[in-house]
Design a protein around this nucleic acid. Structure first.
Length: 648
DNA sequence: GCCTGCGG
């Protein structure tokens, strides 16, 4: 008797690794055990697999049964000629009745990462005989997709006109109906244009109409988050009571300038306040004074930052515990919400968040919702640095709204005032790119043509020119580039720099003693103090699958999972360098980064340098253009308008 | 298309 032909759905399910606990090797051995379809799966047959005992067979059988929702999705996907791997994501996102939901609305597939409209259309043709490109579910899904794509560029809203144009580009005949369907589903919100200023003397017949071109749409997630931020800022502003007499500032005023003292006084009175300024203007020193004052008053202070590294630094500078905002709020896994919320709010009198330019709108909404009436919130940050990864422009919008009290620190203390680095950084902050005038070579600009030549210049600067001409140890010089790929990206630069500075085999996970490494994730729980994403260290020893790494904050022995979160760190991206500074910095601007150059990126890169800055410039006119424009792609948001409306 | 935070 010959075995039945293997069931393609079953085969795809197993091959895609969707059967929990079943390895690749075991999957390949299933046919030999007589298991070629779902119906053939029994604990007894599984027992026939090599290296499988009774207990494992039972476990495999029950994990197969538990994976039935995923199996049902695989059946749909395979029928449409789509990748079975998608099934796991679909079951995660759509729940145990994912298959039924996809049969009801195949375009719901578009909500999953990596799915194209073409994929969703194929599924639709396969599950809905006679599927029509004018189907209202399709139009609705394209509206949401358009808004999701905009979200990746940081926008929380899009003008309705742009969404209409996107719908027309997909041959949707009735864009208004598609938008109405998206709003009806609850996934999308429609925002009427702001009311024009009311002029009391105007003729009643000529009341200005809101401009329909200003109508916007948002994904409800982000539209509601912005509304929550605006409402809760107003709530905290209205419920705050003065913590201490402004005269109390005197007790910590020693060493603070007038603006810094004003910032301290502001926190004592305001429910929400802002403290802004560039690197070296004393933001941290001011926060330290605030913490000292509040502790002396017996107030409960909570310190937090959006990144682990910023939290760690805040803790060192204030000598007061600081955590990530996620930790502060009790983040529950990737999809989940936060343990601290309206029902179980934070119990601090004052909450201070450093590096607030990195706050996106959802995290800010969660933070504000967890602050009970009367909490004072201080956001500290530099609006000129890179914007948050998630959508929103929270710090900038809070400033632009004009309704939140803020103090801007402008006096530079860290770099020599009038030094070439500070002059250049200040000019870039203001949108200008003056010719560099630095006879003492504090700033050196090295022109290059193409990324290969740029890379050569970088290696030359780090290993030869900078140490020889300026006497700066290469160990204190950091290379910073916008990109990973290409000849002047981190990957190739690190290879070239390792070959010159610390050649070797890479005995443990590609690393040798003497290699510079950078962390790409937080491991704050390693002994004794762990490491934070973006920290740079040097390998000081290797063991059996372990590395001893000396980070600036202390030594750490790294093994296992944490090891895979280390990369070579002579050259790192500008994004990862945010929040760190080095005595010497080489900034590389390769031509292929031209499109991603922006004023915040250039400013962030330049301000990483304390004593010496070399700029290897190969991006031509794109650099001046990027610095001149406030941002190449400004984020469209509604928060500033909402804040102003709530205040008025 | 490029870059990137947090969490388990």
């Amino acid at each position: 008797m010959s075995a039945p032909a293997p069931d393609p759905v079953f085969t795809a399910f197993c091959a895609a690794g969707l059967w929990p606990g079943l390895g690749k090797r075991a999957a390949a051995e299933l046919p030999a055990a007589g298991i070629t379809s779902a119906d053939a799966v029994t604990a007894d047959r599984l027992l026939a697999l090599p290296r499988v005992g009774r207990q494992r067979a039972e476990r495999l059988f029950s994990s197969f049964l538990a994976a039935q929702p995923t199996y049902a999705v695989v059946a749909l996907l395979v029928g449409a000629g789509l990748e079975a791997r998608l099934a796991a994501t679909a079951a995660d996102a759509l729940g145990s009745d994912a298959a039924r939901r996809l049969r009801d609305d195949p375009w719901a597939l578009l909500g999953l990462p990596g799915v194209t409209l073409g994929d969703a259309d194929r599924l639709a043709i396969s599950v809905l005989p006679g599927a029509d490109r004018q189907d209202s579910r399709r139009g609705r899904a394209i509206v949401a997709m358009t808004l999701r794509t905009a979200t990746r560029d940081g926008h929380t809203v899009l003008p309705a006109d742009l969404v209409v144009a996107a719908l027309r580009a997909e041959q949707i005949a009735d864009p208004a109906a598609a938008i109405a369907a998206a709003v009806e589903s609850g996934e999308v919100l429609e925002h009427e244009p702001p009311e024009p200023e009311f002029d009391e003397d105007a003729d009643l017949d000529e009341l200005p109409e809101p401009d329909p071109a200003l109508r916007t749409l948002s994904l409800a997630r982000f539209g509601m988050a912005e509304e929550a931020v605006a409402e809760n800022v107003a709530r905290l502003a209205a419920t705050a009571e003065r913590i201490a007499d402004p005269a109390a500032v005197r007790s910590v005023a020693k060493g603070l300038d007038d603006a810094q003292k004003a910032a301290v006084a502001q926190v004592l009175g305001a429910g929400v306040s802002l403290l802004t300024g560039g690197p070296g203007t004393g933001k941290s020193r001011t926060v330290a004074a605030i913490v000292t004052l509040l502790r002396s008053k017996g107030s409960e202070v909570a310190l937090a930052a959006p990144t682990g590294r910023a939290a760690k630094r805040l803790e060192e500078l204030t000598d007061h515990p600081a955590v990530t905002v996620h930790r502060l709020l009790g983040a529950q896994g990737t999809s989940g919400g936060f343990a601290r919320n309206e029902e179980w709010p934070l119990d601090a009198d004052v909450v201070v968040v450093d590096e607030a330019s990195m706050l996106d709108v959802e995290l800010t909404a969660a933070l504000l919702e967890a602050c009970p009436d009367g909490t004072h919130l201080l956001l500290v940050g530099d609006p000129a640095q890179l914007p948050s990864i998630g959508p929103g422009h929270v710090l900038g919008d809070l400033i632009d709204s004009g309704v939140v009290p803020f103090t801007e620190l402008t006096t530079l203390y860290r770099q020599a005032e009038g030094g070439a680095i500070a002059r250049l950084a200040n000019a870039v902050r203001a949108g200008e790119l003056p010719p560099v005038d630095s006879p003492d070579r504090e700033v050196v600009v090295v022109p290059a043509t193409g990324s290969a030549e740029a890379a050569q210049r970088v290696v030359q600067l780090v290993t030869d020119s900078i140490p020889r001409a300026l006497g700066i140890d290469p160990a204190t010089v950091q290379v910073v580039t916008p990109v990973h790929r290409g000849a002047a990206g981190t990957i190739e630069l690190n290879k070239a720099l390792k070959a010159k500075l610390n050649p070797g085999e890479g005995t443990v996970w590609g690393f040798d003693v003497g290699d510079r490494v950078v962390a790409t994730a937080n491991h704050l729980d390693l002994e004794p103090i762990g490491f934070a994403n973006g920290e740079v260290g040097v390998v000081t020893g290797t063991g059996d699958g372990t590395l001893d790494v000396a980070f600036a904050s202390g030594p750490v022995t790294v093994s296992g999972k944490a090891m895979s979160d280390l990369r070579h760190g002579w050259a790192i991206t500008v994004h990862r360098a945010q929040g760190s500074e080095w005595p010497g910095v080489v900034v590389v601007l390769p031509p292929e980064a031209g499109g991603m150059l922006s004023r915040p990126l250039v400013y962030t890169a330049l301000t990483r340098a304390q004593r010496h800055l070399s700029v290897v410039h190969a991006s031509g006119a794109a650099l001046a253009r990027a610095v001149r424009e406030v941002d190449v792609r400004p984020r469209r948001t509604r928060l500033a308008q909402l804040l102003a409306e709530n205040a008025g």
